[in-house]
Amino acid sequence: MKNFSIKNIFKDMVTIPKIGIGIYRVWFRDFFYFKKYLLASIFWNFTEPLLYVVAFGYGLGFFVGQIEGVPYIMFLAPAILATTAMQGAAFESTYSSFTKLRVQKTYETIMMTPISIDEIVIGEILWGATKAVFSSLAVFLVFVVLGMVKHPTAWLTLPVAIMLSLCMSAISMVVTGFARDYDSFTYFFAVFITPMSLLAGTFFPLSQFPSWAQWAAQALPLTHGVHVMRELYLGRWSAALLGNLFFMGLIFVLFTNWAVAQIRRQLVY
């Protein structure tokens, strides 16, 4: 990999992309496709989180009892929302985006029009996040139906899910920019996504970890997403949560810029 250095990555991360209406056009293309297969997409959004609720919430929760003063299922629910958002974004902005980048050559076609590469990449990142938020929303509605939403602030988990999805979508898009084939994503999921969904304070509190690991977990976007969403879900609020949101926002911006630069190198030479 030529010119791969911390300095160049930093340069990519702070280069401001040129944006315009093209972002919406690219986003709309994906939305248009999504709409065609709405029913099929929605169905799968419900199944996995429901399994989690049944297996871990009701099943495991029976033995766990309470965690941090709340029933295990209430502790777990916001984490399921967050993990759903993260995984939705990670899937869409790796497998789907890679297909459009390399297999279907969708981006090259869009490049024949006045839409810039910056707009293509950002539109795709926004779409990845949008689809992820649809999934989170579906899960949230399941929670509402099951009577698991007890505090009004719980509804604020949805905007936080947007932030987390954007952040994860941008990171995944960078991975897509480096990927050689679909196998590259197997590593990404095995090394990053799956461990994160287990270790980011999702199934058990971070306080179970030794302190160094607690610190390390702060580097994971999901840790911040889960924390904020859990606080809001359980009706708690503090100004410190803004720090978590800021962290996710920063990752989103830096990785979006990086993704734009990296995918441009794939498309223009």
Partner: peptide, 21 residues
Amino acid sequence: DGLDTDFTVLENLIIYGSYHN
């Protein structure tokens, strides 16, 4: 060709038209 295989013939033209505003 670079056609968008996710769409029908006419949809291809509509989507591509949208790229042109």
